[in-house]
Design a protein around this nucleic acid. Structure first.
Length: 537
DNA sequence: TGCTGCGCACATG
DNA sequence: CATGTGCGCAGCA
């Protein structure tokens, strides 16, 4: 359209400089144009002038210096119109924000989208302020284009989806096979692998700012793609290490994404061949408290390669001293240290390992922030006491000896007690009689292994043919707070029968307590046995 | 040596 | 107070 030959390039230059937080002044723009497009300063300046005239670029004076702005992206403070076009624009922004979020993290499909996440994403995609976006979202809510789910999150409403996507896609989904959170290498502790980006446009992490849980890892400097917020520092005169003047810029020792990525790759390659070779400086020690480096000076950064997070030393190489790396972060430890350590340290049977900070309950996917995790001696799966079926006794003493129900089930002779001791299982042996790879979350389904001797209770209704209304009235009576939620999620009898623990505990957005209470009732209805109270205490 | 990424101080509305 | 901007620094190629 435009006759301005280098308009796009100049715009790209401005965008580029802005993204680097560099002032897009004439010198930098010219430099960029020359380097990237081989366009001389003369041509650049000439075209820039034309762009200014055309108002596709604005010239601004900021902090006593001249800057240039990409008009398309620059929000002038007084833009507020109520035209049809802007409404369509608003709606598009919201729907593309939703689409982006879901694309990034499919669990939004299941759980809805948190208001804040939506606002944040929409802010990235548009030139609206958060305040404006909040108004827009509220408008969409009242118009029905957006609906509020029972758990407080948002989804596209049944009315109008401008992009033509069925609103069904935003409904609660029972089938979580696609949304199951699996932590793989490179994923952070609590975020799904899909949750790749969070910072706008590149690699940020929108992760619903689960701050407490992130904190422990933020200090590691490992988490790619998330801007680390520095703790506010209070000047303490007694602290000799505090520089008199706070320095700007990247903190010493922090690395950029590419470097981290590279190092992680190198580390993972080395992992299999070598032991104890210098590894990433970004590794952090097990205590994860952020003060990990404070303990011993030189070990900390550069020299920390291959340092075991458990024993803090770099043992001589040997087959038993193989270093394993946490599959979710960069923590490392000697295999031998892990195998002799406490339950939560234990590696998985396949010698993969999650450090205590990344270890998640296989049922609710929460870390030990959400409660003490107990680790199965056989399969190394971790459970919260209440998440495991039956509930893990609180005073279980021999934590290392505890075996999850799933592993117990694979021993037909030893059914029932959760504290069966099988401490001498050969973790490295594939021929173990126990199938260590059998995991509860792979069998994530309605519990069918209730104590067989518990009598069938005919007073518990058969819900299999219930309508959503029936379910609603039943829960209205038995757990009123859950009734509207189940109704909204269109839980009928079949849904109750097939609901899995994760659906209830995780999928409805209820706090853990009510969720478990609800699950207890659901189980009762599923089994028509009411002995479950014992299991839940 | 120049480029990149980004924390954070500061400007602006 | 929220948001935008870009200085100045460390790290990287």
């Amino acid at each position: 359209m435009s006759e301005i030959k280098y308009k796009n390039q100049i715009l790209a230059a401005i965008d580029h400089l802005r993204s680097r937080k560099s002032r897009p002044d004439i010198n930098r723009i010219c430099k960029f144009m020359l380097k990237c497009y081989k366009v001389g300063p003369k041509d650049t300046k000439a075209d820039l002038k034309r762009c200014l005239k055309e108002r596709s670029i604005f010239k601004v004076d900021y902090k006593d210096n001249v800057s240039y702005r990409n008009a398309a992206k620059w929000r002038k403070k007084s833009t507020q119109s109520n035209t049809m076009a802007s409404e369509i624009d608003e709606r598009k922004i919201i729907s593309s924000a939703i689409a982006t979020l879901i694309y990034r993290d499919q669990s939004y499909l299941e759980n809805g989208i948190a208001f804040d996440d939506l606002i944040r994403e929409a802010a990235f995609l548009s030139r609206y302020t958060k305040k404006q976006l909040e108004t827009i979202v509220n408008k969409e809510l009242s118009s029905g284009s957006l609906v509020k789910l029972p758990n407080g999150t948002l989804a596209l409403g049944p009315a109008g989806d401008p992009d033509g996507d069925s609103s069904d896609s935003f409904k609660f989904e029972y089938n979580d096979s696609n949304t199951k959170l699996t932590s793989s290498a490179n994923s952070s502790c609590r975020s799904s692998p899909q949750r790749m980006r969070g910072r706008p446009k590149k690699n940020s992490n929108v992760a619903s700012s689960n701050s407490q849980n992130n904190i422990s890892n933020q200090n590691s400097g490992v988490r790619v793609g998330e801007r680390r917020k520095m703790a506010k520092k209070v000047f303490d005169p007694s602290d000799n290490n505090v520089p008199s003047k706070r320095k700007r810029g990247r903190p010493v020792g922090s690395l950029n994404k590419s470097t981290i990525k590279k190092r992680m790759m190198i580390a993972s390659h080395q992992k299999n061949e070598k032991e104890g070779t210098p590894l990433s400086e970004s590794q952090h020690s097990l205590d994860g408290s952020g003060e990990d480096m404070e303990s011993e000076e030189p070990i900390s950064h550069e020299a920390s390669g291959g340092v075991c997070s458990v024993c803090h030393i770099q043992k001589p190489r040997g087959s038993n001293d193989r270093i394993v790396e946490c599959r979710d972060c960069n923590n490392k430890a000697h295999l031998s240290c892990l195998q002799t350590g406490s339950g939560i340290l234990k590696p998985r049977p396949d010698n993969t390992w999650q450090c205590p900070h990344c270890k998640t309950c296989v049922v609710c996917y929460e870390t030990n922030d959400a409660g003490i995790l107990t680790v199965c001696n056989i399969c190394s799966d971790a459970y919260h006491a209440l998440c495991h079926t039956p509930r893990i006794p609180e005073r279980l003493k021999a934590w290392d000896q505890w075996e999850c129900n799933n592993c117990l089930e694979s021993h037909p002779n030893i059914v029932g007690s959760p504290a069966i001791i099988l401490s001498n299982v050969d973790y490295n042996s594939e021929s173990s009689t126990v199938d260590p790879f059998l995991k509860p979350h792979e069998l994530d389904r309605a519990p069918t292994k209730l104590a067989e001797d518990v009598p069938f209770n005919p007073s518990i209704p058969d819900v299999s043919n219930w309508t959503t209304e029936d379910v609603y009235s039943y829960f209205l009576e038995h757990l009123p707070e859950a009734a509207p939620i189940l109704k909204d999620q269109e839980f009928d009898g079949q849904a109750i029968c097939t609901a899995r623990r994760a659906d209830i505990v995780r999928g409805l957005g209820l706090p853990l307590g009510p969720a478990l209470a609800l699950y207890r009732i659901v189980v009762k209805l599923q089994t028509r046995k009411d002995d479950w109270t014992m299991c839940w205490g």
